[in-house]
Write a protein that binds this DNA or RNA. Sequence first.
DNA 1: CCAACATAGTTGAAGCATCAAGTTTCTTGG
DNA 2: CCAAGAAACTTGATGCTTCAACTATGTTGG
Lengths: 157, 157
Amino acid sequence: MTRWLTDDELQAWLKLAGVMLKLSPALDSQLERDSDLTHFEYLCLAMLSEDEDHTLRMSQLATKANASLSRLSHVVKKLEARGLVVRTPCADSRRVTMVSLTEEGWQVLVAAAPGHVETVRCLVFDGLSPDEVDQLQKIAGHIVSQIDGANLSSVRR
Amino acid sequence: MTRWLTDDELQAWLKLAGVMLKLSPALDSQLERDSDLTHFEYLCLAMLSEDEDHTLRMSQLATKANASLSRLSHVVKKLEARGLVVRTPCADSRRVTMVSLTEEGWQVLVAAAPGHVETVRCLVFDGLSPDEVDQLQKIAGHIVSQIDGANLSSVRR
DNA sequence: CCAACATAGTTGAAGCATCAAGTTTCTTGG
DNA sequence: CCAAGAAACTTGATGCTTCAACTATGTTGG
């Protein structure tokens, strides 16, 4: 028996689908215009910048950026060609690749951040109350967990 | 002066970005495996099915599916090649194209729906309270409006 | 009335994302 | 100890999305 969506759920779902379909392109468009970066590329640089040494394993970065290793590998190759990032073999384990932000990568990130943050503020947070920000965090966190859980359980069987 | 994000906003934002990065692929993957459809293709068929005549103008469908006319045009061409949809010129205005669900398209949609709905329920709604569904609807609706508003204002100037 | 503009849609090229397959390196159960 | 399997990437092909450009058709201010 299919558990259909209630009317409220359907309304909510269509809106969420709208966010997925419109927000990504909107962010890509601003970043590409102003900084020649994809939103996903920006996210990779940002995640690297949060680490003390501006350096992470590929697989750590993939987790932080919510990406597959394959997707990340292609993007890091491109960022490395642009000089924003370098890959180095890891001393401890030879199958591990470390990625680091270069000085230039850091500069590009710093230059891109204000415009990007302003865009996120305008498109997402302007007009949301602190309560709603909290609700958004909980709900989005919940969805991400469900997806991660679903992947795990399909892998385990 | 950049209006940076508060810590709560940043947490919420990273989670929302996670949803965008993980939910689309998860939906595509289920639909493609079980019904040989993209989530976006499914959405187009579903929006057509909601119309009384199973028929919409390209531009109406683009609006309902939150897509650009260009994206829609490519996808409709593909769906038409598969026989799920037909395009017909409009009698009233010669620059308008109407798209209709074929009988086969309807069958494919009906066959795909239970699995897709089940996936949406598992990944999004299971574990959400009715209040949270309502909050999600409001917040996602708000974001979509902001994006639409931003596009309008950049077009108008 | 018509020139200028706007609307509706299509198309081809370029760039991303995903998938499947492959390589290399580690780990572990027998 | 080693064979089998898992982990950590990389790569190439395929297909989808976007962008810019184009055609064709309507609308409207002067």
